[in-house]
Design a protein around this nucleic acid. Structure first.
Lengths: 129, 129
DNA sequence: CCGGGAAATGAAAATGGTTGTCAAAATCGC
DNA sequence: GCGATTTTGACAACCATTTTCATTTCCCGG
């Protein structure tokens, strides 16, 4: 078994936003952990493979990971500024995806939905223009 | 003469699915076009920048492009097997995204939605299994 | 405790898509 | 025709990710 994998998982849990493999690696080294980049990548992939963490691609095409509160299917509302992430459920969206797929004769329909915005803490305080 | 950018755009229009920059480059060379990889990338970026083509990332993290019928905001229903793509509108999803964002105090909400599935032509004809 | 082997680890090289560099060619204006 | 500007394209540079391969660790049996 890999205690390294747990270490990676634990590091991810300390962050509330999505982190890249490189980020996780850098952070672990900062905390004094002895671990290689390769192992971080492998741990992250294994974790994602087991549904322990969620993965998505940022605008740069990098894979970013996050230890989510639930293994259930859900989506994310991510702040563009601070990376703060909220897990959201969207039954309507699930239904919509299924419906759209069915209308066009598609089966085994899956979907990716991510919502980005600026959270209240990061919103520019309007009033002074 | 028309610029290489038009040639790239035209090549993209011949395909009904999303194509990577490398794909477009390879195809153009096959048709005898004299063009460099760099130019294809630049043309694609410029086209995407002007809203002439849509861009998204495939599972490998590559950027893939498609010349869409409309410049309006829309989503895609893509076949995993043949790449056949259907443009779909989802007013409900737009609303949902806005609502979810608002509920959590997020502003300037945007979203990415892609639906994948197997189209009727590619569905395995069950019966003898 | 000791030895063998499979799995895990990690440093470095390889891979591959994408971007940057820079000189040559095409284009435009005069 | 000439020079300035833009476009082009071969190639190097980048950088995240993967692969390679030797070493280390851990488990199991003796």
């Amino acid at each position: 078994m890999s205690s390294r994998r747990d270490a990676v998982h634990d590091t991810l849990r300390q962050s509330e936003g999505f982190r890249s493999a490189q980020d996780v690696y850098a952070e672990m080294r900062q905390t004094g952990a002895k671990i290689g980049l390769t192992t971080v990548y492998r741990a992250l992939q294994a974790l994602a493979d087991h549904g322990k963490v969620d993965v998505l691609r940022n605008d740069d095409g990098e894979s970013v990971y996050r230890a989510c509160a639930t293994g259930e299917h859900h989506h994310h509302l991510v702040c563009r500024r601070c990376g703060h992430t909220v897990e959201v459920a969207g039954p309507d969206v699930e239904r919509w995806a299924e419906t759209v797929g069915a209308e066009h004769g598609f089966t085994e329909v899956t979907h990716t939905v991510e919502v980005f915005g600026t959270c209240s803490s990061c919103s520019t305080p309007v009033g002074a223009g």
